[in-house]
């Protein structure tokens, strides 16, 4: 079992470290490190700490599926492309091990996107003006279908 913890210092950079079965601390899989280093500013720190806490919590819970680092990398890709004006989502893990990104408003409207290891995105939205769901592949740019539902969530007509 790998237990991730927040780094003490890292020469101005945040990274993931783990303690495994051995007492020696070593770096985690490069995919996970890459998954968080690309996110900048407040979004970066928010996502990094959420991911660290999430990893620690999930890896300590034998009832939960292990998380595929590739899914985190794809989630990073999606977060990096998030257009300005949209809040950072809350991050979680689905029962099938996919990464869940949830944008939630206080009026109980929400958009939920699940990110799979191969860039497959499944989304569902409960909005003031109706509902939406679908599956898309993460390619270039931020998916227009997600821009549409997030715009409807944060800027309802």
């Amino acid at each position: 079992m790998h237990v991730l913890r927040r780094p003490e210092t890292s020469q101005g950079r945040l990274g993931f470290w783990e303690s495994g079965d051995s007492a020696q601390t070593r770096t985690v899989e490069p995919e996970i490190v890459k998954a968080v280093r690309g996110i900048r500013g407040q979004r970066y720190y928010t996502a990094v700490f959420e991911l660290i806490d999430l990893f620690a919590e999930t890896n300590n819970d034998s009832k939960e599926l292990p998380v595929d680092p590739r899914a985190f990398a794809r989630a990073r890709d999606l977060l990096e492309r998030l257009p300005n004006g949209f809040a950072v989502p809350e991050i979680g893990i689905d029962p099938d091990g996919e990464i869940a990104l949830d944008w939630i408003r206080s009026n109980r409207t929400l958009v939920s996107v699940s990110v799979g290891a191969f860039g497959n995105l499944s989304y569902a939205a409960h909005l003031r003006d109706g509902t939406a769901h679908g599956e898309i592949k993460l390619r270039d740019g931020f998916p227009p279908a997600l821009t549409d539902v997030l715009r409807r969530l944060f800027h309802p007509a």
């Binding site: 919590e57 979680g92 029962p95 099938d96």
Partner: peptide, 22 residues
Amino acid sequence: LFQSNHFSKANEIVRPSAFLPR
């Protein structure tokens, strides 16, 4: 709910992941 990422305390809502089937 056994995982903190299965709910949003700030928005007082159970997150969809908590309900998805296994």
